[in-house]
């Protein structure tokens, strides 16, 4: 445990019948850090979050928050603020009453004046001070989640737990709200655990992203490290797009597309392997004597995605800045090479 570790999940295990939702999950979170847990459905990320909230009993493991063992503490005594995937505002209370609710309870009892001031302050923080007297049914989905965030923050939680709070919202609102969550989290310095299946969401706002699979943490790292230096083929394939291209591995390098690039730790060390190449790691230049043909080109705004068929029949996807892709359209002959970036190589077959 490092000196700044604030939350510790130690060897958590939970089985639902034959399904192992958590299978020895361990995770440390530093104070004020935002950690996102990312993974496919059923990987155990929500179970881990619910266990930390006290809403899910564990078969095994220990939960430590601020140096105290909270494993067997009731949810109502843990002081965790949680925002749920489903809209969870109390329908018979206004936005202000919802925010004040936790402060009226014994666990966080606050005097009337202070309570009002706190709710006003938080509603302002989430940009809804003019909606304080609105009932949940008078608010849009995004507004409801903002109030839910204010309500969770009102009790000055030890840890803020976000269980896919943006998944019910439309794309534009989702992007806007996730940025606001990050702004507020940094402003208040609240230690936060964020569960999502949306990798863009996780990579864009988290200090560190943990990729989960079968109840275990595959890798936890800063977003850029996770993307550029995956430690397992699952992480490489789950986070972002990859082109699986086979080549010969030897001495920590692999030969593919006529280039030799270094392999990342954890890769296959010898024989034939399949390199998982990011579309941005592929360089494409228009050339009449090129080794490939563009099958299709998609303009994505700042970048352009090219579906390319190599002369040997292999298919790859490349993504390059739109300025570099000017003049390269479907049917163009191009020369394809690799940028000098280390790649993850998994075993063939």
């Amino acid at each position: 445990m490092s000196s700044s570790t604030y939350v510790q999940l130690v060897d958590l295990a939970k089985h639902f019948g034959k399904v192992r939702a958590l299978d020895g999950l361990s995770l440390d979170i530093a104070q004020g850090e935002l950690v996102a847990l990312l993974g496919p459905s059923g990987c155990g990320k929500t179970t881990a979050l619910r266990a930390l909230a006290g809403l899910q009993e564990l078969d095994r493991g220990q939960l430590i928050v601020d140096g105290k063992d909270v494993t067997f503490q009731n949810a109502n005594k843990r002081g965790m603020g949680m925002v749920f995937q489903a809209y969870s505002l109390f329908p018979h209370m206004t936005a202000r009453e919802n925010v004040e609710y936790g402060l009226k309870l014994k666990a966080h009892k606050t005097a009337g004046d202070k309570r009002k001031a706190r709710s006003a302050e938080l509603l302002e923080l989430v940009g809804l001070s003019t909606h304080a007297n609105h009932f949940p049914h008078q608010l849009s989905g995004g507004q409801q989640q903002r109030v839910a965030l204010a309500r969770a923050l009102a009790i000055s939680p030890k840890v803020l737990l976000l269980d896919e709070p943006l998944s019910a919202l439309d794309a534009k609102v989702r992007t806007q709200l996730r940025e606001e969550i990050r702004r507020i989290q940094i402003e208040l310095g609240t230690t936060t655990l964020f569960v999502t299946h949306d990798q863009e969401e996780a990579l864009s706002i988290a200090d560190r992203v943990g990729v989960m699979r079968n109840g275990q943490l595959e890798q936890i790292a800063a977003p850029s490290e996770l993307y550029d230096r995956p430690k397992t083929s699952f992480v490489a394939e789950f986070v972002g797009l990859t082109n699986p291209i086979s080549g010969k591995v030897s001495g920590g390098s692999i030969e593919i597309l006529g280039s030799v690039v270094k392999t990342l730790p954890g890769s296959v060390t010898s024989g034939t392997g399949i390199a998982l190449i990011r579309p941005e790691s592929i360089d494409v230049v228009a050339s009449k004597s090129g080794n490939a043909k563009v099958a299709a080109a998609s303009f994505l705004g700042a970048s352009c995605r090219l579906n390319i068929t190599m002369n040997d029949g292999a298919k790859v996807t490349a993504q390059l800045p739109s300025s570099d892709a000017a003049g390269i359209g479907a049917g163009a002959t191009v020369s394809v090479s690799l940028l000098d970036m280390p790649v993850f190589v998994k075993a063939a077959g």
Partner: peptide, 29 residues
């Protein structure tokens, strides 16, 4: 007609005990 599970869990994380959840949150809902 309502997602009482989520409402109950939300109330619990905010510090409500079982009787408060039932009488203060679910019943008015």
């Amino acid at each position: 007609a309502v997602d009482i599970h989520t409402l109950a869990e939300a109330a619990r994380t905010l510090g409500a005990n079982t009787s408060r959840v039932i009488f203060g949150i679910i019943m008015p809902t």
